[in-house]
Design a protein around this nucleic acid. Sequence first.
DNA 1: GTATATGCAAAGTCTTTGCATCGTT
DNA 2: AACGATGCAAAGACTTTGCATATAC
Lengths: 138, 138
Amino acid sequence: MDVREDVGERLRDSGYRMTEQRRLVWEALHSGRHLTAEQIHARAPQVDLASVYRTLALLERLDLAAPVQLGDGVGRWELAHADDEFHLACVRCGRVSHHASNTVAQVREHLADFHGFVPLEVDLVVHGICAECSALAS
Amino acid sequence: MDVREDVGERLRDSGYRMTEQRRLVWEALHSGRHLTAEQIHARAPQVDLASVYRTLALLERLDLAAPVQLGDGVGRWELAHADDEFHLACVRCGRVSHHASNTVAQVREHLADFHGFVPLEVDLVVHGICAECSALAS
DNA sequence: GTATATGCAAAGTCTTTGCATCGTT
DNA sequence: AACGATGCAAAGACTTTGCATATAC
């Protein structure tokens, strides 16, 4: 699953060049999830913000990274991963965790079986109060 | 379910004033779903764009309208509705439809029962190919 | 009459683009 | 050596804010 070593190869295979900037952005993406362009830039200050955006767009085209919309209107990015994971966003502490389940698969089946809609990407974000914050509040 | 008549009352009850601009935005929201601020402004040209934004923020505070994130990075709005409806966005023709099912309820239960996370809002958007476009492609 | 809401214009934020230079292949 | 990628700065899209005027109550 960790393709950190051969991004260069992957890029070259697709006709792109491997550069220090792209490597730094790629590494930054490994340091967290649902990161804003600004956060990635903070983790790779040598890379111009414009290049961060350009690199993210490229990685998206190659299905190596994916944009995330948590509903706060801020553009966020993370490494591509199976979309049977979804986000749990705590409205109290702001932390966002990932959660894997068969829920997304169920949604897919439900749609395909009954409605003729062919699901490609399922984006599921649940806002609520995480276990830690619930405990504090009681 | 149609509270069109008593928005004024609702506003006044909450300490706000009923104005022609707010009425126009409110009506515009009834003319479609997942509308951008620009689209609402087009449907109510007499209302300044800034007031459109201010009114939408107010309606959101009163739970009369809700922002929608379809994943295209564009801010969209619609009348508040039960969140067991979710969006189906066709990546081919761009049309977005609403779909109601118990899927969202299942997600809520799943989380509450097993993970201590108290779900508040569930945002589910499915990107894919609608039945019409599937038919055309075959 | 008073306080809130509006219009207009300016400022903010986030993202994209143009272009000369640099660096990978 | 050639062409793609980068930095920098400017432009763009979208949204918010300040302030004087208008308006609901």
